[in-house]
């Protein structure tokens, strides 16, 4: 069983990120970069599957500049068996990422592509579903539980109103939600061991073809400052004056 885990290098999700005043880019305030937290959940899940079944093989993949090597090393330290960096300084939008991952999936023939439901930088929530469509594979997004057995995936997934369970034959694409697992802390031996694991670098096999282009970045509109009220009574009269309660 081979599990392919695409990971994205994103700015620390807890950092304060602002638009530059001239609207041309982001001010990340020198924040660190991390593995997209949802991709980290995907990695953790893959590692747990391997712990249950030693024949599971985990390939971590990232598309981007040479700096992505840091995140792939971390993925190896978490337990991926090998890593592939598709090295490119070009801009990749979600459909371009999906197309490159589809080409790689055809080559590696994984039984499962397991990845985050969205990246915390662009919040797009597109790449995995697009990959599944390009491969014409079934998918389960927003997974909160994943079982693999007998060549099938059984996935409990979150919905707008609760939860549902989907069953499908492998290969398929699954995206992770927060409650799937809690990623492990990486201990030092894992970091040392990761240095000797294979990390292959190669150029992309597809050209990014941008279907969307970000032309400007702005600060969100600010809310007019509110005020503190001294009591529940005062709060209720303010809300009545605003007409938001009867």
């Amino acid at each position: 069983m081979k599990i392919m885990v695409p990971i994205k290098r994103v700015v620390d999700p807890y950092a304060k990120v602002k638009a530059l005043p001239d609207g041309t880019g982001l001010d990340t305030g020198g924040a660190k970069f991390e593995i997209n937290p949802f991709d980290e959940i995907a990695l953790e899940e893959a590692v747990r599957k391997r712990e249950a079944d030693p024949s599971v093989q985990i390939v971590a993949v990232s598309i981007g500049s040479s700096s992505c090597e840091d995140q792939l090393r971390k993925a190896l330290a978490m337990g991926a068996d090998e890593a592939i960096l598709i090295e490119s300084d070009a801009e990749w939008d979600s459909p371009s990422v999906a197309a490159e991952l589809a080409a790689l999936a055809k080559e590696l023939a994984p039984d499962l592509v397991l990845m985050g439901k969205q990246a915390t930088d662009d919040d797009n929530n597109q790449a995995a579903q697009m990959l599944a469509a390009l491969l014409d594979w079934p998918q389960a997004t927003f997974a909160s539980k994943l079982d693999l057995a007998g060549g099938r995936a059984t996935v409990a997934r979150e919905t707008d109103t609760g939860e549902e369970v989907l069953e499908m034959a492998l290969p398929c694409v699954v995206t992770t939600d927060l409650r799937l697992n809690e990623p492990r802390y990486i201990a030092l031996p894992g970091i040392i061991k990761a240095r000797s694991k294979p990390l292959a670098k190669r150029p992309p096999t597809t050209e990014p073809r941008l279907r969307t282009r970000t032309v400007r970045l702005d600060a969100p509109p600010t809310r007019p400052p509110g005020r503190k009220v001294g009591s529940v009574d005062e709060l209720v009269s303010e809300l009545k004056a605003r007409g938001v309660v009867a």
Partner: peptide
Amino acid sequence: PIVAGSVIATVTVET
């Protein structure tokens, strides 16, 4: 909105 609503992106569609 992107980055948890910290930034508003203006996006053009090329297709």
